[in-house]
Simulated assay, not measured.
Amino acid sequence: MSVQEQIVAREARHAVILCHPDPHSFNRAIADRYCEEVHAAGQDVVLRDLYAMHFDPVLQAAERPTLPNPIRFGDVTAERNILWGCDVFVLIYPIWFGSPPAMMKGYVERVFGAGVSPHNVREQTRGDLLGDKRLLSFTTSAMSGPWLAQEGQELGLSAVFDDYIVHAFGMHSREHKRFALITGKTGRNTAATYLCDVAQQAQRTCAQIAFGEEALRRDPQLARRFSR
């Protein structure tokens, strides 16, 4: 990697937002592996573990963005300051009863949605925090892939959560990696294979940010420059 490419890589920043109550969960392993790969690529990453933070997901009446002058509470301001300048937002969570955990939904409402009015959503206004940035999601489920497909889970979640977030906040693009049959009985080989997928996605995302989509399409091997 040239000196110029290294400088570009170091300037990039990833926000990894983890939502799982078990500190030893596979979701946590996904977050840790992603962060390790980003650091190895010479890029910056900030991890936000919502349960460890005791994040309050409850949107208060005074915060509603439909109000003329909604209040922005201190915890939201502090969180947005931490996320400021990130190039990609990585959401990691289990699928519970067909949707993200309530805490993740509350994070989107309170932090991502702070100051975003219905007019902004309709016009797909590019906000100062998320505008033109990337969305990457990793989700796990105890159910099988065929069962999830039969229930319309993939298309449904993509439409009501991924696509909506991208459009509502004027983001650049979105990708979603799904891991099925994640239970206490998941074998080590399966877990290792999934974590290898996480590492490859992290390397690809680092390359997308560092070199741009067009350059990566011309030369897919650019992502290998970030592999260990």
Rank of each mutant, 00 (worst) to 15 (best):
15 A>F: 01
60 Q>R: 14
22 D>H: 03
13 R>I: 04
98 G>Y: 12
77 T>M: 06
16 V>Y: 08
39 H>V: 13
114 A>Y: 05
60 Q>M: 07
95 I>F: 04
61 A>G: 07
26 F>S: 07
78 A>C: 05
125 T>Y: 14
78 A>D: 06
48 R>M: 04
34 Y>I: 05
106 G>S: 08
107 Y>D: 00
37 E>S: 13
30 I>E: 10
14 H>W: 05
73 F>W: 12
79 E>R: 07
57 P>L: 11
69 N>V: 11
61 A>F: 08
35 C>Q: 04
44 D>P: 00
117 S>K: 15
100 P>F: 08
83 L>S: 05
109 E>V: 01
42 G>L: 11
47 L>T: 13
59 L>D: 07
106 G>W: 10
20 H>E: 06
126 R>K: 15
63 E>V: 12
79 E>P: 04
18 L>T: 09
99 S>E: 13
30 I>H: 01
89 F>P: 09
121 V>Y: 03
19 C>R: 04
27 N>S: 12
30 I>C: 12
103 M>V: 15
59 L>R: 14
109 E>C: 03
124 Q>H: 14
52 A>F: 02
46 V>S: 08
45 V>A: 15
37 E>W: 11
78 A>E: 14
46 V>R: 11
17 I>A: 13
121 V>F: 02
15 A>K: 04
43 Q>M: 14
64 R>N: 13
47 L>K: 11
85 G>D: 13
28 R>V: 11
104 M>P: 14
61 A>K: 10
30 I>D: 08
13 R>D: 00
67 L>I: 08
41 A>R: 01
20 H>L: 02
77 T>I: 02
127 G>Y: 09
17 I>Y: 14
94 P>C: 06
81 N>F: 08
120 N>L: 01
126 R>W: 08
110 R>S: 00
90 V>E: 11
35 C>V: 09
29 A>R: 07
106 G>I: 06
123 E>M: 13
58 V>N: 11
87 D>W: 02
34 Y>E: 00
122 R>G: 06
44 D>C: 06
81 N>H: 12
42 G>E: 11
74 G>P: 00
118 P>D: 08
47 L>P: 07
127 G>A: 10
27 N>G: 06
93 Y>A: 08
123 E>S: 15
128 D>Q: 12
91 L>D: 09
128 D>N: 09
118 P>E: 09
31 A>I: 02
88 V>G: 03
33 R>I: 04
83 L>K: 00
82 I>E: 12
115 G>K: 07
19 C>Y: 10
51 Y>E: 09
97 F>R: 11
106 G>P: 09
14 H>I: 01
101 P>C: 02
